[in-house]
Structure formats: structure tokens, C-alpha cells
Design a protein around this nucleic acid. Structure first.
Length: 872
DNA sequence: ATGGAGTACAGACCTTTGCTGTCT
DNA sequence: CAGACAGCTTTGGTCTGTACTCCA
């Protein structure tokens, strides 16, 4: 099996590109900040106080130096001496301390990033991704709770009681029209008076409808529920007063602003305008229903409750507005621009301190529309399921001008998708739209509200994209949907799916594929040519690609405008050939045909030291970068080595045989890819060559991977049989060895137990409190403690001579070795048992201290040091 | 609002034949 | 004592896809 070759770059000792060094200092705050506190205890008082008094200044002032140190000088021993630079003295204190995060007040912002021309670091990206994921889950749970409250029968009762008589009549009408209720025997037409004139027109229809079988839905004027919903929305818009701000996305704000907001939220009395609307429990929710006022969000939640109260299946829909994971303007906190009250800036989680709100002290009626008036799209709304058609009707009770969007009106449903400059400014996004049903389950319905129901549409950049998880052989992936995973906890079980579910899942929630543009139809652009599968510009050819000799351009493309316009020939992709160097072809078992001329010449990529030296030498001599030729497949042929003669295997200059593909094995020979075959061949006295099947790269070296041997075909059977015998013997030897080792380990373990028991008898240590102490493992400490507790034990104090007497006490049986007995510098206590086998029972030493361990220590317990470790 | 051009970045790809100490 | 074997270390330049901004 070829050994593992790491493909990914892990670290680089070279300094990163200059751009990285030009990063704004504070961008590295998260990884560096925890280090500063370690130093506080042993740094001089000046730096200490300056750190605590003016952390921002200090961090800011040292930051440029700091980042250089961070990247160029990892040797922290030097850093300890740098007393002036508090933040560079990183891990000076040896003992463990609490990790502290000190974040710079002037936290990095998008603008800083752009000025410094640096992107967010990996860790910063991770922080945002995690924040986003956490926020999404919090919002989901919040909505699940609100949904449960919207199910409350008392809330329903409150809302039902408030309905005027007219609405009750409408409800009854709807029930009859839907066939849910039989019409009363009275001949009086079920039309309400407010539609007087229309009723005249509809009279014939109603006559007809009466001819329908009672108990059957009357669909003659469309789904009757739509009429009812429109009435309910009109009622709700009139009755519900928006008196508080709802949820919204603010973006990432500077830490200082966040801290102020949190402190304000914790310490000040709750103010909905500054801290957001708070409904602590169901009782408060009921009270809100009673008052018919609150945020737009609560308005939609109560509206959902009202619809449910009328016996209609309704879902509470929420378009989550989580903090994102990108670095666009939308993720950056933007304080209200014309704000005159600096205290309000960055202050509230609940409300944007809009000037019109803070300045206007007009009566509530005028103020009512002010909350969230800058949000052009709803965040919460209702989905009503028609009991007749099982289709979903989207209802926004408070915000949109077209509040009722039936399934058929895809454009109206797409109106819920935030778009436009106003939505941009208000940071309204669509990424996850979740509908919570009355049974407590929830399902994702984002697709319904995307324009043309096309993915990813506007969710792009705001929603966690599908993650490609590699599986199986290279190039195979499965798509991992993070949100799908999160939603699994909320979803309705497959067997409990309703007719509504089934219908929408086959229709409204089926995403459309984005319309592919016909590349041939549109005019050429650089982008279209870059991605085209049919045409290509010469400049887009990859390093390993070349044009077929004699390929004719199909047309020309003019790049640039005006004076900078430049004509370029456009070629067919079909005329592009994949090329490889002679060495690369060799690895595929092919060689260039005699007389083949390279289609392309490219600079040599030298990786190993030897190759690098060669390339440098050539570069020095010629003054030009040496090039290597690339050849197309049809310029190469299979390497067919000549058949072997007399059982002799041909070998290359390294004494082995290249066996990258099976065809490279010469006729008359066989590849036996078994380990340890070399020895067997030697034993048998047959000719062989080790088979090189690939290379392993690392440490600027290419190491051949050898898998077994190539032998003459007539020797193959002999070799395999002998190998089997050998392997069986080897296995037996290994089993015996393993058994021996197991027994040894047990023996050692039992001795250890005996020693521990003896130590306990001698010094105690059964006190659980003492055990819990930091040095409870240390028998000396325990002994000392015990003696302190019992001063009249033997009257001796805790001086060194006495300690030595304790050492001596151990010597009588399984005791500790005296200092100097073992001349190594091990910190651990070595206990000698009756069989004179040293056992390390405690070691606070690190590897470097272990390096001096004597030869008699067991390798399996004290790993042998590496050369690198010793070199340091 | 949209799309093209340009830029930056992360991750993937390509690379082609030791050295030394310890064990068996 | 010779030969086998384990362990070291895990590059770095270039390409490519993607995200993002700017600009028309």
C-alpha cells in the first residue's frame, strides 16, 4: 500500500507574502489576545498597569511589532527578554492559568480589511460561521416557542372574543362555502350586507350555488378561504398596533459597541426601544393578545393564532435574519446615520435608533407605523392551508401591499423575498424560511418565496451552502446540508405527512433549475469564454494544455475597450490537448515516440533538493529559467520492456524496476507485491528487482515507494509458496512476542499496584479531600500534610535529612531510589520493585527531560526521542 | 438591478530515487 | 557484524474555483 502523502500545506516557515504583513495590527486579536494575561504576573509592574489601564493603546501601539514577531520569530525564549513589549512576552508563566480574551476595542471592520488589502483569516471565518450557525439555531428555537404560544387555547379564546360580529358571519359563510358546515335552512342568502352591490351581481351565482349538494365546497368563486383571509387581514391591520421593534439583522458591531449594549441590557431597566421587545412567558403573550399591540413579529404570531382559533390550519412562518458569515457590507453594523443621540448608537439589540422614532414624541397613533418602517418586507407571516385544495396561501397580516398570496400567484409569493436597495440598507435577507405547524413541527419553505423558485437565488451568500464531503475514492463527494441537519429535529415524521405536505413537496417546494444561458447565442465576454466548454482563448490554456498543431481559430474576440482593445483568436476546446512532461508520462507507463517535438515548453517545477539544485545551476549558467517539454498523449506510446531472458530481471540505475503500471512489467516476469519478498528471493537465490510503484514526497525529497519484487514468471509460484511459509512463521513469532509482552505488562502493572498499596500504607493518602488537591499524587506532600495534622507523631520536622530518612524507608521493599542512584535527570519518581525493574510512576517532565533517560527504561513506556528533539 | 472585469484567497495539484540509528 | 528496517517530515510554486468589489 502506498504510504500516506500529505497533500495539504500545513505550515510555512518562510515569511508570508508582503500583503499579509501589511495587515492591520488588530486583525490578529483573537489568536494573540489570550497570551497577554499569562505574562501579567511576571512582567514588570509598568507593563502590567499599562495593560490593565489602557489595553487598547497598548495593543495598538505594539501591534505592528507584534505581528512581525508572531510570524518571523516563533522562538519564545527571545520574546521573554523583550520586556518593553508586553504582548510579545507570550507564554512566559509556566503554570496554567485561566484563558482570557482581550479584544481590541477598535475591532477590525470591513473598511479596514479593504484598506489593508487583506482578507479575513481562517480563524475569523470560522468565528463567523460558528456565530451564524448558533444564531440560526437560536432563532429557530425562539420561533418554535412562539409557535407553541400561538397554539395556546387561551390566546385563541382571547382573540376569538374580540372578533366583531361581521367577522363571525364571514367565518360562518366560509364554513358553509367550504362544505364544513351545512347551511341553515333559512332562505336568507348568506351574503353580508357590506357587499351589497356585488351581491346583486352575484345573485345568480348564489342561486346556482344553492343547487349544489349541501356539505360540498363551493369553488365557483375560487377558494372561499381567500375571501375570509382578506377580511381577516383587513381586520388585523385595523386593530393591531405596532408598538415595539421586531427582530432584525444588525450585522457585526465593534466589540466596544457590543459591550456597551450588553451592559446596558443587563444593568438598565428593560426598554423595548433599546433592548428589543421582550415577552417573557405565555402569560405575557396572552396579555399582548389582550392589548392587541406589540412588534410586527408578534402581530404576525398573533394573527397566526387567530387563524388557528378559527379552526383553520395555519403555520407560523419566519424568515430567519441571522448574522452572516461573509464580509460584505450587509454583515457590518451600520449605526443609524443621522443619529443625534450618541448613547443610542450601538446600544440596542431591539431597535435601530432611528431619528424619526427618537425625535418624534407624537401620539402613539402616529408613532405606530414608525417601528421597523424601514423594513420593506415581513420577517414573520402566516401560511394558511386551504382545507379544500390543500394548497398553501401565504398571508402577511401587516407589511406587504399584497397581503394574500395563493399558491397559484407565484409572483405574489415571491414578493416576500427581500430585494432592492431598501431591503439592502435594512439588511433584510432571505436565507432560511421556516414554517412552524400547529403540531409543533416545522419545515423549510424557502423555495416557495424565492423568485421563480430558483436556487440558490437570493439565499446565496447568506445561507450555509451545501458542503462537499469527500467519500470513497478521490473525486467522489456527498453534499452535506447543514441546515437540513439542523431542521431534522423539527421535521414532521414521514409517516405523519399531511396532504398539504405531499402536495407542496411535489409542487411549490420543488426548486427550479437556474435557466442556463446559451453560450453560443450571446456575444463573447471574457467570462463566458473562460467558463465555456466549447471555446477557449489561448491565454486561458492551463499549464498542461496546448493547442493541437494546425488548429484554426473559429473567430476573433475583442478584449478591452477603446484604445486598449485587443483582438484574440478564439479556438475550439476540442482542439486543446492535455500534455504532460516526459517524466509524467513515464509515471503513466508511457514514453515519447522517437522524434516527437514538444507541443509546449514550460518552466520546470523542481521539488526535491537535487532537482532544485540542477534547475538553479542551469538558471545560473544560461541566465534563463530552464524549460521542459510537454507532450500530448498521441505523441507517446506504451513502454513495452523487452522480454526477460534467462530469468534475469532488468534493473534501472538505482537497482530496481519501475512498475508504475502493470504494463511496465516485462514479458516473462511477474510482480509479487508482498512485503519481505526480497529476503525470500535471496534465500531462494532467484534474481529479482524491487518494484517501484510510485513516489512519496516530503522533506524536499522524493522517496520511491517499493511494493514487493519483480521476478521471472517461472519463479513466481516458488516465491509465493516460500513467502507463505515465512509469513506463517513470522506470524507465529509475533504472536509469541505479543503474548510475552502482555504478560510482562501485567507483571509490571501488578508490581505497580503493590507499590502503590505499600505507599498508601506507609503514608496514607486515603483522604479524598487531600487527593483532590493539586499535588495529591505526590506522596511527600501527603506525608507532610499528615504530619502537620499529627504533630505529636514522632516529633521530627520536615527538613531534608528527615526526608532522606523517608527515602531510606522505601529501600526496604519496593522503595524509591535514592537521589543519585540513577544519574538521569528525570523528574519522575522511579520506584524499584523486588525484581529490580524500574517503573516510572510519576513524571512531570516533558520530552526533552525524557531525552536523557537511561537505556534500561522500557521503550514502550518512555518513547525514544527523535533526532529532531535532540537537535534542539 | 445586473453583469463583466479584476482581485484575492484557500485549497488542490504536481513533484521523480536519503540518512541515520537501532534491531535482528 | 551486516543488512533490514523504522523514523524522520509533511514542501512550495502554480493552478483553479469562488467570493467579493468596482464600475458601467
Amino acid at each position: 500500500m502506498p504510504p500516506f502523502v500529505p497533500r495539504k500545506r500545513v505550515s510555512s516557515e518562510d515569511p508570508p507574502p508582503a500583503k499579509r504583513q501589511a495587515r492591520p495590527d488588530n486583525s490578529q486579536a483573537p489568536p494573540q489576545a489570550p497570551r497577554a494575561p499569562f505574562h501579567l504576573s511576571d512582567s514588570d509592574s509598568d507593563s502590567n498597569s499599562s495593560l490593565s489601564d489602557a489595553p487598547e493603546d497598548l495593543l495598538k501601539g505594539n501591534a505592528s511589532e507584534e505581528s512581525e514577531d508572531e510570524e518571523e520569530d516563533i522562538d519564545w525564549e527571545d520574546a521573554i527578554d523583550t520586556k518593553t513589549n508586553a504582548t510579545t512576552t507570550t507564554v512566559a508563566a509556566p503554570e496554567l492559568q485561566d484563558l482570557e480574551l482581550t479584544l481590541d476595542q477598535n475591532e477590525t471592520h470591513v473598511s479596514d480589511l479593504l484598506d489593508g488589502k487583506k482578507g479575513p483569516s481562517k480563524i475569523e471565518r470560522q468565528i463567523r460561521i460558528q456565530t451564524h450557525c448558533m444564531h440560526v439555531q437560536c432563532l429557530l428555537f425562539h420561533n418554535a416557542i412562539r409557535n407553541a404560544w400561538s397554539n395556546d387555547s387561551k390566546v385563541h379564546e382571547i382573540l376569538r372574543k374580540k372578533l366583531p360580529e361581521g367577522i363571525h358571519k364571514e367565518v360562518k359563510k366560509w364554513r358553509i362555502a367550504s362544505g364544513l358546515e351545512l347551511p341553515e335552512p333559512k332562505p336568507e342568502p348568506p351574503k353580508s350586507k357590506k357587499k351589497g352591490k356585488k351581491a346583486q351581481k352575484n345573485k345568480d351565482w348564489s342561486d346556482e350555488s344553492e343547487r349544489l349538494e349541501p356539505g360540498q365546497p363551493d369553488m365557483s368563486r375560487g377558494d372561499p378561504i381567500i375571501t375570509l383571509i382578506k377580511v381577516l387581514v383587513a381586520y388585523w391591520r385595523k386593530q393591531f398596533r405596532i408598538t415595539a421593534p421586531g427582530l432584525r439583522k444588525y450585522g457585526y458591531r465593534p466589540v466596544s459597541a457590543l459591550e456597551t449594549a450588553i451592559t446596558d441590557f443587563r444593568e438598565q431597566e428593560h426598554d423595548p426601544e433599546r433592548h428589543g421587545e421582550r415577552i417573557a412567558n405565555l402569560d405575557e403573550f396572552r396579555a399582548t393578545a389582550e392589548r392587541m399591540q406589540g412588534s410586527r413579529d408578534v402581530g404576525a404570531q398573533l394573527f397566526t393564532a387567530l387563524v388557528r382559533a378559527l379552526g383553520i390550519e395555519a403555520r407560523l412562518v419566519a424568515s430567519l435574519q441571522p448574522l452572516g458569515f461573509g464580509w460584505t457590507k450587509g454583515e457590518t453594523y451600520t449605526p443609524a446615520t443621522p443619529s443625534k443621540d450618541p448613547e443610542k448608537e450601538g446600544g440596542s439589540e431591539g431597535t435601530e435608533p432611528e431619528t424619526d422614532v427618537t425625535e418624534n414624541k407624537e401620539p402613539a397613533k402616529n408613532k405606530r407605523k414608525q417601528f421597523d418602517s424601514d423594513l420593506p418586507f415581513p420577517i414573520y407571516w402566516t401560511e394558511v392551508a386551504s382545507p379544500i385544495t390543500h394548497e398553501i396561501i401565504s398571508v402577511d397580516p401587516l407589511v406587504l401591499s399584497n397581503p394574500v398570496a395563493p399558491f397559484t400567484e407565484t409572483d405574489l409569493q415571491a414578493n416576500f423575498e427581500p430585494r432592492g436597495a431598501k431591503a439592502d440598507r435594512a439588511k433584510q435577507v432571505i436565507c432560511y424560511v421556516v414554517a412552524h405547524s400547529s403540531d409543533g413541527t416545522a419545515k423549510e419553505v424557502t423555495t416557495r418565496y424565492l423568485r421563480r423558485r430558483t436556487w440558490p437565488g437570493k439565499t446565496k451568500g447568506f445561507r450555509m451552502p451545501l458542503e462537499k464531503v469527500p467519500v470513497g475514492p478521490r473525486g467522489n463527494y456527498i453534499a452535506f446540508d447543514w441546515f437540513g441537519m439542523v431542521m431534522r429535529g423539527y421535521q414532521r415524521a414521514r409517516k405523519s405527512k399531511t396532504a398539504v405536505d405531499k402536495l407542496e413537496e411535489t409542487r411549490d417546494l420543488q426548486p427550479n433549475q437556474p435557466e442556463k444561458k446559451k453560450a453560443t447565442q450571446t456575444a463573447d465576454t471574457l467570462q463566458s469564454l473562460r467558463t465555456s466548454t466549447e471555446f477557449v482563448l489561448e491565454r486561458f490554456l492551463r499549464r498542461e494544455e496546448a493547442l493541437r498543431p494546425g488548429a484554426e481559430p473559429v473567430r476573433t474576440f475583442i478584449a478591452g475597450k477603446g484604445a486598449r482593445a485587443k483582438e484574440e483568436p478564439v479556438f475550439r476546446r476540442a482542439d486543446v490537448l492535455k500534455c504532460l512532461s516526459a517524466e509524467s508520462w513515464h509515471k503513466e507507463g508511457r514514453q515519447t515516440k522517437p522524434g516527437a517535438v514538444a507541443l509546449k515548453r514550460v518552466p520546470i517545477r523542481a521539488v526535491t533538493l537535487i532537482r532544485k539544485r540542477e534547475v538553479d545551476e542551469m538558471h545560473r549558467q544560461t541566465g534563463e529559467k530552464p524549460l521542459q517539454g510537454l507532450y500530448a498523449r498521441d505523441q507517446t506510446e506504451y513502454i513495452i520492456p523487452p522480454p526477460i531472458q534467462d530469468g534475469r530481471i532488468p534493473k534501472n540505475e538505482y537497482g530496481n524496476i519501475d512498475c508504475f503500471v502493470p504494463s511496465m512489467v516485462p514479458a516473462g516476469a511477474a510482480h509479487v507485491p508482498l512485503p519481505g519478498t526480497v529476503r525470500v528471493c535471496k534465500k531462494l537465490g532467484i534474481d529479482y528487482a524491487e518494484a517501484v510503484t510510485g513516489f512519496e514526497f516530503g522533506s524536499k525529497m522524493a522517496v520511491p515507494v517499493i511494493q514487493g519484487v519483480v521476478v521471472a514468471a517461472e519463479n513466481e509460484g516458488l516465491l509465493r509458496d516460500a513467502w507463505k511459509v515465512e509469513a506463517a512463521e513470522k506470524r507465529k513469532r509475533e504472536e509469541l512476542k505479543a503474548e510475552k509482552k502482555i504478560l510482562q505488562t501485567w507483571r509490571k502493572f501488578l508490581f505497580g499496584l503493590r507499590i502503590m498499596e505499600r505507599v498508601r500504607d506507609e503514608y496514607g493518602g486515603g483522604d479524598p479531600d487531600a487527593d483532590r488537591e493539586r499535588d495529591s499524587h505526590n506522596p511527600f506532600a501527603v506525608h507532610k500534610k499528615k504530619r502537620e495534622e499529627e504533630p505529636d507523631d514522632d516529633g521530627a520536622d520536615e527538613d531534608m535529612p528527615d526526608r532522606e530518612s523517608s527515602y531510606n524507608a522505601f529501600d526496604h521493599g519496593g522503595g524509591f531510589l535514592l537521589p543519585g542512584h540513577d544519574d538521569d535527570a528525570d523528574d519522575g519518581l522511579v520506584v524499584e520493585n523486588h525484581d529490580q525493574q524500574p517503573v516510572s510512576i510519576s513524571s512531570g517532565s516533558d520530552n526533552e527531560a525524557d531525552d536523557g533517560k537511561g537505556e534500561d527504561s522500557e521503550p514502550e513506556y518512555a518513547p525514544r526521542p527523535t533526532r529532531r528533539t535532540r537537535a534542539r
